[in-house]
Every structure is written in C-alpha cells, then in structure tokens.
Design a protein around this nucleic acid. Structure first.
Lengths: 341, 341
DNA sequence: ACGAAAAAGGAAACCGGTGTCAAAACGATT
DNA sequence: AATCGTTTTGACACCGGTTTCCTTTTTCGT
C-alpha cells in the first residue's frame, strides 16, 4: 500500500483493476485473447499507477534477459561509439538495455569467454561488429545458446535475418571511377588485413573498377595494412618508394589513410598536389587532418539501429538482410594528377 | 537430471550435496556461519557441476541487478571507449556486466530519463563521466534511488568514496614550466567550456604557472572552445590574429589542439617552427596528426578500473578518493620560440 | 431455448535465487 | 546425564513475473 519509492508490481495492478495477475500479464504481452473492455480497464490502471514490468522478474521467468549485447574487437573508437548510439536509438523507451563486451579476437579463449558470458547473462541477443562478425564459429555459438544475433558485415555471411550490411564494393568502385575521371591512371591500394571481409570487399571493388577502366594494378601498387595508423604509414612508404609513380591512393580505412598522409609528409610529397588520397569510414580524423580528407561515409548509426530492431522486434525490420548505402564525402585530399608525368 | 544444455541450478547442487538450498546460498555468498566441512562438501559439488548462480534470479531476490552502468555525454569517443575497457578490466571474471547509456546533458528531461532508467534497470551502480559527473542533482538522484555511483572528475566534487580523479592542475602547471624553460614567454590558452570542472582546473593550472613565472596573460591570449575540433579552429584563429605574437599555445584537449593545427596551417604558420602547441588527453589524433603532438596523457583505463572496483568491491579499493597522475608526452609539436621576435 | 464449441479469465505452480525464523546439532558446564 | 547457550542448518515464504491447466462465460447453430 505505502508505495513511496518502490514501484508498483503486477499484483498492485491486478488488485486495483480487479483482475488476476495473469490477465495483467496478458495485457502486457499483448495477448490477442483478451476482451477489449478488459484490456482497456487494465491499461487505465497501468497508466494511473505508472506501472512498468520488472525486467528482472521477466528475465527470470522467461529465462532470457532484456539485454542486448555488443560484442566487438574494433580498432576504431568512433565506429564503436556511433554504433552504440544507433543501438540506443532503437531501444530508447523500451525496457532493453545495452551491455558492451570488448573481446580479444586473438585470444585463444575468446569463444569460451563469450560462451561463459552468454550463459551467465542470458542475453536477448547480441550484435556482432566486424571483424568478429565474420567468425562463423561465433555465430554458431550464438545459435547453440539460443541467443539472437545480428552480424554487421559488408557481404553476405549468413542467412537473411541475421545480417546488416553496406555496399562497400560498389562505393569503392565509384571512388575509383571518380579518381580516373580526374585523370589518375596509376592508383595505389592500401588494403586491410586478410581475414576481414570488409577488406576483401573493398579490394575487390578496387580491382573490378581498375579492370573496367583497363588500368593495370602492378604488385608494387598494392600494400597491406592492419587498419591501424602505423600500418598505413608503413604501407604508404612501400607504395611511395622508388619508381611506382602513383598519383592517387585508396586506403581501406581512414586511419591507414592518415598514416599515408604521414608518410607523404615525411617524404615531402604534397597532398593533394602530388598525391591524392581517399580513405574509408569518415571518422573524425578524416575531417581533422590537413588537408581534410576525401573519404567514404557509411551510415553506421542507422545500421546499428536496424540491427537492434531486428533483434528486439523481428517483425518491424523484417527478415530480409538490410543493405545500407555508403557514399563518397569529397573534401580536399583529392585533386587532378600532377601535370608533369 | 538430463542436463544437456540447461545449466545446473542451486537445487541440483543442494540435492547432490545433500543439503538445503539455503546452505548452498550461504556458500555462494561466503557466509561466515558455515562449518568448514559443509562448505567444502558443497564447493566440491559446485565445482563438479560447474554451477554458476543465475544472476537474473539473484537480481530478482535482491532487488538489485549485477549491472554497472556507464552514463556519459562525452565528446571524445576514445575517452569513452578506453573507459569502457577499464571497467571491463575490473569486472572480468565476475558476474557483472557493463551497460552503457549515452545521455544528452542539454536535454531538460535528462534527469527524468536517468531516473526511469535506474528505476527499471535497478543497476548495482553507475559510473559518471565528465561532464555529467559534475552534476550534483544527478549524484543526489543516485543516492535517492539507492544506486551506487562513482564520479570521475578532476577535482573534489563529492565525499571520499564516490570519486576518482586526476591531477590536471598540477600537470598543466608543469606543461607551462616546460614551455617557459624552452624560452616561450607569450603563451596562449584555449580553454574548455564553462561548466566543465576539467576546463576550470586546466585553466587554473595555466594561470598559476604563468603567474609564478611572472608572465602576463593578456585577454587576447585566451580563447574559449567547447572541446570540439571546430571550436579549436575558431579559438586559434582568434588567438593567432593581429598582433598577439603568441609563440606557444596550450589547448585544454587534443581535439581543440588539432583545430589549432588546422588554423595555423591555414594561416601558413609553421608548427612547431613558429608556434608550439600542446594538447591534453593523448587521444589517437595527437599521435596521428602532423607533426605528432605533445600532449598530456592521463591513465583513464586505470581510473575506470578503480572506479568500477569502488562500486563492486568497496573493500578493496577503499573509501578514500583515488587520484591518478597525468603526465606529459613529448612529441614534435613543441620547439623553442622563433629567434626573430 | 439448448447444447456445444470457442473465448476469456483465474488458481496454482514455477523460474532460481534470498530472507526470516525456528529447529537441530554441538560443545561446555554442572 | 541433563541443561544451557552457541553455532549450523533447514523449511518456508517471497521477489515479480510467466506458464499450465482448468473453470467460467460468451457466442452461435439448430
């Protein structure tokens, strides 16, 4: 009775509405076998009391928590944080909460750790960010544990309902088109680490476009990095040395592109005067570096929202995989190739 | 009996060990009034079965979840993410999980939203990141709701056990000492937004050191930003215009310092040749920008870990406020002032 | 108007733990 | 051996929901 502080329970609602708790439960769960009048009566009481079902109790009864998990091993802070924001967009005003779990994909115990985590926390579902979203054993683990999951990826990795992706390949092709149109012929690539689907997609986009334009891609015009700044420096040093004569360069992410800036600067190569650079991600560094970097932006926040909705309300966002369009953001790191060949 | 898949419960343990579930509960909770023999017997069964208490059930019974919340409205992704890692360090191998909740401190509903969130999720405790860690109403709300909390801050804001802080002021003083030692006399300040304790601390450190060296700080040598890149550009433009003749500049965070780089570049001012710049935070951009930026690094991950420990195990990390030392990271954005005055 | 089927609602058990309080076991004393 | 005061332990209710199963009510065909 004295309810200062402690929130009303389903029993309070039932008593005041003059029905059984099961009926209240039915209202909460939108059971279809309820008379409209009853529903309204109960809903009125719920509204009056400001009743919210206790997630802990539901979690216990349903053997399933109202928690969405974000599993990631992501080198890029901004990406992860944007993703978190997107998930929050989806669960705002619901009883769901977001729990985060950074993992170490190089640890041999990763799967075991995650299994433990899932077993203990009994999450409603998990969101898998690249690169671990590409781990098939992990997806299988989720299935085994009866835990919903959605993989973020840049290509088809799974059946329909578990996937949210972007069109990396196409947009990289258009990046190359853009460079070629400006007159570039010798274009270099800093690709991402093997094992990353996104890296493969972007590389394929690059190769396809070059081929379409009848341009060669010599060995020396390609270098591999690991998506981190330092590896970008190193890769660019390789690309820029000797006689390659590259006039433009596409890096598979912004951090490596920033590394390329660094390498160019050390070598006294002007950007974009002597070398045009395009990155990928549109992370803050792209806007903050000098000159501001032309890069590819993908709608991570929207993708995250969609992924979360797939988990908590499969009806709304559907069983089909969702593909979100990335787009080129032109700033000042691209120009025509230098006149003297 | 058939326990494929579903994990064992306290009942299984009790039955097999031949004791009551309450006794098992006592073992789990390290109750001191247990006979050693009983404890061992039960623990053996627990180990054999690989039993883990179900957090949902405990949450229901205790009216308190095993969830730590991270409340933030932070402009810096890397800071937030590092903080998350630190919390994870603390709760690894415990039953705790970390839930994140970005908030909007400019929203008039913020407190109401948070109240709702706390009421529904019944968190074990929350970690408050700057700037909302400085909101006293919020701290009071936590107390009201019976929710543990720890504030991250750069100065005393609360009583002892609720605080983890850094020594911003001192370290900024040492930054200025360093610049003065190199020969700088006209040093500019880009300060952070009003309302941020950290901004005030850093400003005071700056002013104290300048005063100690007998150096003036004219109006025109100070500009205010909001901790974001663009505001850094703007502030630096103000500082660098006309006749100020500043030879060095301290920005209250790295993003604004990066903005100052940008402004300098646009004006054709060489860094560090004509202008030395020091930032604060040691965020990735400091290492990636050109030239690599001298900045202040503070041990956010350790601070986060300490904060989390304060919540989940007040015994271990103690009731006293913890202060963690920040330190200067010297890179290439600082040099002696230009010879021609 | 009647009986049968369908719809609506309720009682009680259950999810897996913890709290309360009384009972049992134990040790020391007499 | 009986008594008493501590430890230890257990029975049972409870946390706030859901599920199962059964009863009551409504609807409808004939």
């Amino acid at each position: 009775m004295a309810m200062s502080g402690s929130s009303p329970t389903i029993n309070d609602v039932a008593r005041i509405a003059g029905v059984s708790k099961k009926t209240v439960s039915r209202v909460i769960n939108r059971s279809p076998l309820l008379k409209e009048a009853t529903r309204e009566k109960v809903e009125k009481v719920i509204a009056e009391l400001g009743y919210t079902p206790n997630p802990q109790a539901r979690a216990l009864a349903l053997r399933r928590n109202f928690l969405l998990g974000l599993l990631h091993d992501n080198p890029n802070a901004q990406t992860v944080l944007n993703f978190q924001e997107g998930v929050l967009d989806a669960i705002r005003d619901t009883e769901f909460a977001l729990v985060v779990r950074p993992v170490d994909r190089r640890s041999p115990d990763m799967l075991e750790d995650i299994r433990n985590f899932l077993e203990v926390q009994r999450l409603y579902g998990v969101l898998l960010l690249p690169p671990i979203s590409e781990n098939d054993e992990l997806a299988e683990l989720c299935r085994d544990m009866g835990c919903g999951y959605v993989r973020m990826g840049s290509a088809a990795l799974d059946t329909s309902e578990h996937l949210v992706q972007s069109n990396d390949r196409e947009v990289v092709e258009s990046v190359i088109d853009y460079l070629v149109e400006l007159g570039h012929r010798r274009i270099g690539l800093i690709e991402g680490p093997s094992g990353f689907r996104s890296a493969a997609e972007r590389r394929e986009g690059f190769r396809a476009a070059m081929k379409r334009h009848g341009l060669e891609v010599p060995e020396t015009a390609v270098a591999q990095g690991n998506y981190r700044f330092d590896s970008g420096v190193e890769a660019a040093n390789k690309l820029l040395q000797g006689d390659t004569q590259i006039t433009a360069l596409f890096a598979s992410n912004d951090e490596m592109a920033a590394g390329a800036y660094h390498a160019a600067r050390e070598k006294g190569i002007a950007v974009p005067g002597q070398l045009s650079i395009v990155g990928f991600d549109n992370s803050p560094i792209a806007a903050h570096i000098w000159p501001p970097m032309t890069t590819v932006s993908w709608p991570i926040r929207e993708m995250a929202k969609s992924a979360a909705l797939k988990l908590i309300d499969p009806g709304s966002d559907g069983a089909k995989p969702s593909t979100f369009p990335a787009r080129l953001v032109t700033r000042d790191s691209v120009g025509p190739p230098p006149p003297t060949t």
